[in-house]
């Protein structure tokens, strides 16, 4: 473990940490910090349009994390779908409903006094159980992932793959149904 958690001396801990920094670790810390900061901005910004922009940054950060994890295909999918599609969807919805939410565009945080300790409590539980769990895993060198994913989707995971296309069809039909304007002349 490069980061000895049982060290009592804080200075020794810091020294140990800095000496084992590699370029990889520095890039991880940079991307992780950007992702985290953007995420905090998403949930705290008063103006929800600003929130959305920081959401884009968060998604970019996550794509960066995928690249650090050698997940090349997934990083591309993340950018294409999350930033390219979902963000645009949210933007449209915000703009279409902004008249209604005009007063609410300046979002204040309700009840953050209660929410913050609850969230921090959950965070402590998660860190203690998930991060400090003895995983004991080492990373083997990884190659490009696209071929493996493609093969899996066409052989072992063919059924969910085809089912997902029906899910998307239903989502499209339902979304159009709900969002479209109903002129009164259509009786059915």
């Amino acid at each position: 473990m490069p980061f000895d958690l049982h060290s009592i001396n804080l200075f020794d801990m810091g020294k140990q940490f800095v000496f084992t920094l590699t370029l990889q670790k520095i890039s991880f810390l940079a991307v992780a910090f950007m992702t985290f900061a953007s995420a905090v901005a998403v949930v705290t910004m008063k103006n929800i349009f600003h929130s959305l922009l920081f959401l884009v940054l968060t998604f970019l950060g996550v794509a960066g994390i995928y690249l650090l994890l050698s997940a090349d295909f997934l990083a591309a999918v993340q950018v294409l779908v999350y930033i390219g599609a979902i963000t645009v969807l949210i933007m449209f919805a915000l703009m279409l409903t902004s008249k209604l939410m005009a007063k609410r565009v300046s979002q204040t945080m309700e009840q953050w006094i209660v929410a913050l300790p609850v969230t921090l409590g959950i965070l402590v539980v998660l860190i203690r159980l998930v991060v400090l769990n003895p995983w004991g895993m080492k990373a083997a060198p990884a190659g490009p992932t696209t071929g493996i994913i493609g093969t899996s989707l066409m052989t072992k995971y063919l059924l969910p793959f085809e089912l997902a296309s029906i899910v998307l069809l239903v989502a499209v039909v339902g979304a159009i149904l709900l969002a479209k304007e109903d002129k009164s002349d259509d009786p059915s």
């Binding site: 905090v40 996550v62 949210i90 609410r104 945080m109 929410a115 969230t119």
Partner: peptide, 21 residues
């Protein structure tokens, strides 16, 4: 990082009044 992001999401869910938020 994932745990921190998850909790940030929970905070957003608990405090936002706007459904899109």
């Amino acid at each position: 990082l994932a745990a921190v992001l998850f909790c940030t999401g929970i905070f957003g869910v608990l405090t936002r009044r706007n459904a899109i938020g």
